[in-house]
């Protein structure tokens, strides 16, 4: 089975976000870049399946300019076999999905895996959009993936529990926490072998955006915390009722 894992290059999740003057763009100077955490879990699971022998080839794909290559190399070092970089600066989720779809039309694959959201724009969009553009079935909220006799056995979260399903191939999975727990750390052997693994660069499609961010601002500061004496917890109940009005 050949798996495509879509990865996004995002600022480290502990980054303090700053903006350029005018607050229309994020100031990325000095930012440490990482693989989007959900994509990294997706990749980790794909690698586990490859090690178990049920996956033949893992290809990672991203839509980004050349400065995302360290992130791509890390994915290769972690255990992906090949990488595709769609050379474009995506302008919104739609545009990202479109670029991925165009590039994947020329690829052979059985399963595409996308993280449920990216930690930068939190759009929850690309996976579903990509599936629709590729006209392939998708399963969302996926928390585990096994492959038995070349058939994917998928667990997805449903209200109040979970459901096990299978999907006709080629298909797309939108995965969340649970698909893997701890992301794979690349080994030195992996880092060495990443040097020679193929990284293909394909031309992107031009940028039409359906959504545009016109302003960024910092979230409002919380007012300071009221400390309640641990000997007087009645006060907490009282304040939650009369002041906060939540109970």
């Amino acid at each position: 089975m050949n798996i495509i894992v879509c990865i996004s290059n995002v600022p480290d999740t502990t980054t303090r976000i700053k903006y350029k003057p005018g607050n229309k763009d994020v100031d990325y100077t000095g930012v440490q870049w990482i693989i989007n955490p959900w994509d990294e879990l997706a990749l980790t699971r794909a690698i586990e399946l490859k090690e178990a022998g049920t996956v033949k080839k893992i290809t990672v794909i991203t839509v980004a300019k050349a400065d995302a290559e360290p992130t791509i190399r890390k994915a290769l070092a972690s255990g992906a076999d090949e990488a595709i970089r769609v050379d474009a600066s995506p302008v919104d989720a739609w545009n990202t999905a479109l670029n991925l779809a165009e590039a994947l039309k020329n690829e052979q694959f059985d399963l595409v895996i996308c993280g449920v959201e990216s930690s930068d724009y939190n759009n929850w969009s690309v996976g579903g959009m990509l599936a629709e553009m590729l006209r392939i079935p998708s399963v969302s909220a996926v928390t585990s993936l096994q492959i038995e006799n070349s058939k994917p056995i998928i667990t997805r979260e449903v209200d109040g529990g979970r459901q096990q399903v299978s999907i006709k191939l080629p298909g797309l999975l939108i995965v969340q926490k649970g698909i893997a727990i701890v992301p794979r750390i690349p080994s030195m052997r992996g880092i060495m072998s990443a040097r020679t693994k193929p990284l293909k660069v394909v031309t992107g499609v031009s940028g039409e955006s359906l959504i545009e961010i016109v302003d960024y601002e910092a979230p409002p500061q919380k007012s300071s915390c009221k400390i309640i004496d641990s000997e007087n917890l009645e006060m907490l109940a009282e304040l939650l009722h009369t002041e906060a009005r939540v109970i």
Partner: peptide, 17 residues
């Protein structure tokens, strides 16, 4: 979250989540 992105492509609609 599952339906909206696919719906957006079908209708070529901008989707804000």
């Amino acid at each position: 979250r599952a339906i909206a992105p696919r719906l957006a492509v079908k209708l070529k609609a901008g989707y804000a989540s």
